[in-house]
Lab assay of single mutants.
Amino acid sequence: LTVEVTLDGRRIELHGLSEEAHEILRHALERNADDKEIKKILEELRK
């Protein structure tokens, strides 16, 4: 799955996400998580 997010003013596409990762990010974006929170989530998903 692919998600497009804006971090530090740049639009980035995240490819190859699992369903779980996609859901976690989608929920964070829906509640307008800040860049710091999104980065933390991405860091966790990379593990």
Rank of each mutant, 00 (worst) to 15 (best):
L1E: 05
L1V: 09
L1I: 12
L1M: 10
T2F: 09
T2Q: 05
T2G: 05
T2P: 04
T2R: 10
V3R: 03
V3Q: 04
V3T: 05
V3L: 14
E4T: 15
E4F: 13
E4Y: 11
E4G: 03
E4S: 11
V5S: 02
V5R: 02
V5Q: 02
T6I: 14
T6V: 14
T6S: 07
T6G: 02
L7R: 02
L7C: 10
L7D: 02
L7T: 03
L7N: 02
L7A: 03
D8V: 04
D8S: 05
D8G: 11
D8M: 04
D8Y: 03
G9M: 02
G9P: 01
G9E: 03
G9A: 02
R10I: 15
R10D: 06
R10Y: 11
R10A: 08
R10N: 10
R10G: 06
R10M: 14
R10Q: 13
R11I: 13
R11C: 08
R11D: 04
R11V: 13
I12E: 04
I12V: 11
E13N: 07
E13C: 13
E13V: 15
E13I: 15
E13S: 12
L14V: 12
L14P: 01
H15T: 13
H15F: 14
H15W: 15
G16T: 04
G16E: 05
G16N: 13
G16S: 06
L17P: 00
L17G: 01
L17E: 00
L17C: 07
S18G: 06
S18I: 02
S18E: 03
S18R: 03
S18K: 04
E19L: 13
E19C: 11
E19A: 10
E20W: 14
E20R: 11
E20K: 11
A21N: 06
A21I: 07
H22Q: 09
H22A: 15
H22T: 10
E23C: 12
E23T: 11
E23I: 10
E23V: 08
E23Q: 13
E23S: 14
I24H: 07
I24D: 03
I24M: 13
L25E: 00
L25R: 00
L25M: 04
L25Y: 02
L25N: 00
L25D: 00
R26A: 06
R26F: 05
R26T: 13
R26V: 10
R26H: 05
H27S: 14
H27Y: 09
H27P: 01
H27R: 15
H27I: 11
A28R: 02
A28C: 04
A28V: 04
A28D: 00
A28W: 08
A28K: 01
L29H: 02
L29S: 02
L29E: 02
L29Y: 05
E30T: 10
E30K: 12
E30F: 12
R31A: 07
N32S: 09
N32Y: 10
N32E: 08
N32W: 09
A33Y: 07
A33K: 04
D34Y: 05
D34H: 07
D34Q: 06
K36M: 13
K36G: 12
E37I: 08
E37M: 07
E37D: 06
E37A: 07
E37C: 04
I38Q: 00
I38H: 00
I38L: 12
I38Y: 02
I38F: 05
K39S: 09
K39P: 01
K40W: 13
K40H: 11
I41P: 00
I41L: 09
I41C: 01
I41Y: 02
L42P: 00
E43N: 10
E43Y: 12
E43I: 11
E43M: 15
E43L: 15
E44V: 12
E44R: 14
L45W: 12
L45K: 00
L45Q: 02
L45Y: 07
L45P: 00
L45V: 06
R46P: 05
R46H: 11
R46G: 14
R46A: 13
K47V: 15
K47Y: 15
K47A: 13
K47P: 08
